[in-house]
């Protein structure tokens, strides 16, 4: 099923932070029109590059693939505001480096990704999956 109209903003854990394309989702950031620095989460008022006076930003969807920078898991249930469904199922977490943006972005690993089979430097892609409370969030999984 690839009908994006079935997904509404109400289902996102962080509305407006990513597209709701069920097949090829992307994180939604901004880019300083003066120096080219990308921002995720979005930055819309002042550029944080200390040498840049930029105050205008363009909306930009971030690269949806990158290389695995590092990874771990959450063996114990995280505290609130994380919502835990019992019985607790540990989940993985990845840090993925986006080449074009020169930026590392964290996210959970998609369900079922085996930590033991991951290798730093491998290609990863962005997907959407529900958190335990059913709200959608972006996750990383090995690129097909």
């Amino acid at each position: 099923m690839s009908d994006s109209s079935t997904l509404s903003a109400a289902v996102a854990a962080l509305p407006g932070w990513f597209t709701l394309d069920p097949v090829r989702p992307q994180l939604l950031g901004t880019r300083c029109t003066a120096c080219g620095t990308y921002y995720f989460p979005r930055q819309q008022l002042f550029c944080r590059n200390p040498d840049c006076a930029g105050e205008t930003f363009e909306d930009v969807a971030l690269s949806r693939t990158g290389t695995l920078w590092s990874y771990t898991n959450a063996a114990y249930p995280p505290p609130e505001p994380y919502v835990v469904k019992e019985p607790y199922q540990p989940f993985g977490i990845a840090a993925v480096e986006l080449e074009r943006e020169c930026m590392i972005v964290l996210g959970q690993l998609a369900r079922g990704v085996d930590l033991a089979r991951l290798c730093i430097g491998q290609r990863m892609e962005l997907v959407l999956e529900p958190l335990d409370d059913g709200k959608l969030i972006w996750k990383w999984k090995p690129a097909a």
């Binding site: 854990a13 920078w69 771990t72 995280p78 505001p81 994380y82 989940f91 964290l106 958190l131």
Partner: peptide, 30 residues
Amino acid sequence: ERPDDPDWVRFRMGITNPTYFALYARRRMA
């Protein structure tokens, strides 16, 4: 519900302090 606070956002995603320590540690191993 405070998505403007990065500390709130990362906990919402299940990212605790040990997550960061572990990412750095794994990096050393690699």
